[in-house]
Amino acid sequence: MEAQRRIGDPILRVAHLRKSFGALAATDNVSFELREGEILGLIGPNGAGKTTLVNLLTGVAEPDAGRVEFNGVDVTGWAPHRIGRAGMARTFQVVRPFAGMSVRENVAIGALFGRGQRHSVAAARARADEVLAQVDLAALADRSSSALTLQDRKRLELAKAIAADPLVLLLDEVMAGLHATEIDEAIDLVRRINRGGVTILVIEHVMRAIMRLCDRIVVLDAGRVIAEGTPQDVSANPGVIKAYLGARWAARELGAEGA
C-alpha cells in the first residue's frame, strides 16, 4: 500500500539501528531521516560503519535492534530482493556488471525485477533503451558489458538501478576512481536523476563531491551519528573535524579560535 508522497516528507526513516559483530558495534543507535526529493550524503572516516549501514538498509544484513521504515512500510529484516522490489535501488562500490550479458541486457534486469516490474523481456529491453539514453550509454547498448571503461561501467551500474524505477537510490561510493572532470560529470548526472523524481542517498569518501552535491549530510563515526545538517554546518562541526583530522588538530584549531 503506497503512501502519498510529498516533497520533504520522510521517505526513509531509520530509528535506533544497531548491529554488532562480536564485541564490535559497527552500527550503534543510528537514527536519521531521508526526505522525499532530497540528496542526502552519508559520510564518515574509514571504519565509521557506512558499509554496514548500507547493508542494513538494503537487507543484506539484519539489524540486532532498531527499525527501518521505507515509504511508510516497516521493512526491517526484509530480504534484499523484497526491498529492491519495494523501490530502494542500490549501486555497488566495486562495479561488476553481469559479464555474460550486453549493456542493454544488464539494464533490462533492473527493469524486469525492480519496482516497475515489467513482465515481458521485450518491455524490459525497451525500458532499458530509455534509461541508457538518459545516462548517455545508448551507443554502447549492444556491447559486452565487460569491455567498458570505468566511467561507463559506473554509468551502467546507475542505469541498472534506475531501470528498476526506484523511489530511493543508494549510491555507494560512486565517485571512487574518477578524476576531476569525470567527477563533475557524475555530479551532473546524479542531479539530473534527482530532478527526475528519485530521492538519493549518497555514501562517499570524495569530500569535494559530497559537499557540492548534497542538500544535507549525516556524519558517522565509530558506528554513531555525530552530526547532521547542511554541508556548511557539518564541515564546521567540531566533532566532524575531530573525526577527520584527529583530536589534536581539532583541539588546536578550536583552541586557536578561542572556542
Binding site: 567527477i183 570524495v206 557540492r212 554541508p231 556548511q232 564541515s235 566532524v240 583530522l245
Partner: peptide
C-alpha cells in the same frame, strides 16, 4: 594528497597552518 594528486608540499610546520589541509579533508 587530495583525490590522487599532490595539492601542496613544504616544510611541515608551515603546512600545519595552511587551509588546504582542511579542504583536502573536508571538502569545504
Amino acid at each position: 594528497l587530495d583525490t590522487g594528486r599532490v595539492v601542496l608540499s613544504g616544510p611541515a610546520s608551515e603546512l600545519l597552518e595552511r587551509p588546504e589541509i582542511r579542504t583536502a579533508y573536508l571538502g569545504l
